[in-house]
Amino acid sequence: MDARFLGIAELVEAPSVAVVVDVMRAFTVASWAFARGADKIVLAGSLDEALALKARHPDWLALKDGPPAPGFDTVNSPGLLRSMDLGGRTVVQKTTAGTVGALAVKEASLVLCAGFVVAEATARVLRTRGCNGVTFVITGEDGQAEEDLACAQYIARRATEARTDAAEFLRRAAASRAAAELAKGVRQGAHPDDVALCLELDRFPFAMVATSEDSLMVLRTCAVPDSTDAAAS
């Protein structure tokens, strides 16, 4: 598999297949939202768009980075979201990196959004669909986020080598700037368990695919082929 690892600003054309990685915390949060029963996640392009969507759909749940703010139901924290009942709900998500990265590649034929919690499921989709050229979008820190790069490289390796050991990739993510800032409380709207939750390898069995629906970029869970498929052997 030909894998490229690019920051958002380096995307000069729409890739055929894109894996948008935001470990801490957008797509870990999205994974938890689905695990807590969410039906779909609308990726908003701005805070104003998120609030406008919420105003038109009062039953939707809106979340954002940083501290709580008027109009938003919660913040971008897996530790806070994991106790919420989102059964059948639509979530509107706006973050500084993950949602921006997904919207930047909305013209791609396949857009997967990922973190460590759905790493194997994401790699399995790439394997079984025979994706030869994949662009991994490193969303954090202008493409320099070590936790996102480590996760992207791990998924790329797993897509071709099913027995890849995750330990070194997780170690890099745990030592990242984002992990340190979350642990020290530098980033607002966080829970003490956020770092640990973001580093839970393969916590969930699904992948997440973003597609355009009625002019919106919508994230949904994706059925993942059985792990015994021939490509994984």
Rank of each mutant, 00 (worst) to 15 (best):
P58R: 06
G87T: 15
L53I: 12
H57G: 01
A114S: 13
L103V: 05
A26G: 08
E107V: 00
T122M: 03
A108Y: 01
D85S: 12
A102C: 12
V23H: 10
E107F: 00
A30R: 01
F72E: 10
L80K: 07
G71Y: 14
F27L: 05
P58Y: 14
L110F: 04
G45V: 10
V105S: 05
D22T: 04
V29D: 10
G71Q: 13
A55H: 08
K40C: 09
R25V: 02
E107R: 08
W60S: 13
K106D: 00
S109C: 00
K94A: 09
R36G: 04
S109H: 10
S83D: 15
G45Q: 05
A52V: 06
T95V: 08
F116W: 08
A52L: 06
V75M: 12
L47C: 00
G66E: 05
R89W: 06
R89Y: 03
K64R: 15
V42K: 14
A35M: 03
S83V: 04
K106R: 14
A38G: 00
P78D: 14
A50C: 11
W60R: 02
A97M: 04
P70F: 01
K106T: 00
G98H: 08
G101V: 10
P68K: 09
T74N: 12
A104Y: 02
A26Y: 08
A30I: 09
A108T: 05
E107T: 04
R56M: 14
R36I: 05
G88H: 14
M84V: 09
W60F: 11
G101F: 11
A123E: 06
R36E: 07
G88D: 09
L53D: 08
S109M: 01
T90G: 05
E120W: 05
S109Y: 02
P67T: 01
K106H: 07
C113E: 07
G79H: 06
E120Y: 07
L80F: 08
T74I: 15
V118Q: 08
G37T: 06
K54W: 11
G101E: 03
V105N: 06
R36M: 09
L86V: 11
G37H: 02
T74K: 13
K64G: 09
V105G: 05
L53S: 04
N76A: 13
V23E: 08
W60T: 09
S46K: 14
R89E: 13
D59W: 00
P67D: 11
N76C: 13
G66C: 11
F27S: 03
A69M: 14
P67F: 06
T96I: 01
A38V: 00
G98W: 05
R82F: 01
A104M: 03
T90S: 11
R36V: 03
L63R: 10
D22N: 04
N76Y: 12
A38H: 00
G37Q: 03
K94N: 10
D39W: 02
A30E: 04
V117E: 07
A26E: 07
K106F: 02
K64F: 02
P70Y: 01
S46Q: 10
G88A: 12
A62K: 12
V42Y: 14
P58K: 04
G45K: 02
A35Y: 07
G101C: 09
L81S: 05
G88Q: 13
